[in-house]
Amino acid sequence: MVGPSSSHTAGAVRIGLLANFLFDGTPSAAKIGLHGSFAATGKGHATDRAIVAGLLGWRPTDERLKDALALAEQAGLKVEFETIDLGESTHPNTARLELTDAAGEKLDMVAASIGGGSVEITQLDGFITLLTGSLEALVIWHQDRPGFLAHITAVLACVATNIATIRTARRYRGADALTVIELDAVPQSEVAALLRKIDHVKKIRVLPRLV
């Protein structure tokens, strides 16, 4: 890795990178809120540059990291930082990323860097979830409907892809929902196309394992 701290720098790059995967590319604007130790020592630890490096799709080993803010501007990514307080029970190294682009695409993500470069996404578009990036993952935005998960898991069963974890959260009965599935193998490319055909699916992202 590159940069002073595994949690404040390498973990922060990974948070940005997961956001890049979930956004399916680099956004045109990012509002980044830093909580706790991220806010207190983020400057010295280059947390700001690290998250931006991840948003640009760079890996934690990328030696351009120290120039990330300038290079983001050149790449058309407008970044704004703020200090936030998510409460005493929130992990001290937590960031909130609010991403947008010209096409109206939006993502709101809260993630913690829990030490040694490991990370956890704890909220996605307001849904409580848990996604670590340590396994391949499917993230599905959908409607809460009876039998929905059965369709998803049936497709995965057909291609014999093992589900390691699965979490669904919804706003209220019948409303928007989010399902995060961690897998033990890379899903074949046609799997995402098949899943997209399932009724009530709004958006799917296939996330590679972070290495």
């Binding site: 890795m1 590159v2 002073p4 701290s5 595994s6 280059a46 030696e63 990291l65 040694g116 470069g117």
Partner: peptide
């Protein structure tokens, strides 16, 4: 090397690498 933004291996963290 780390303070100079060089490549290191976090074992287990950068501050203790």
């Amino acid at each position: 090397t780390n303070a100079a933004f060089g490549l290191i291996v976090a074992t287990p963290t950068a501050g203790s690498a």
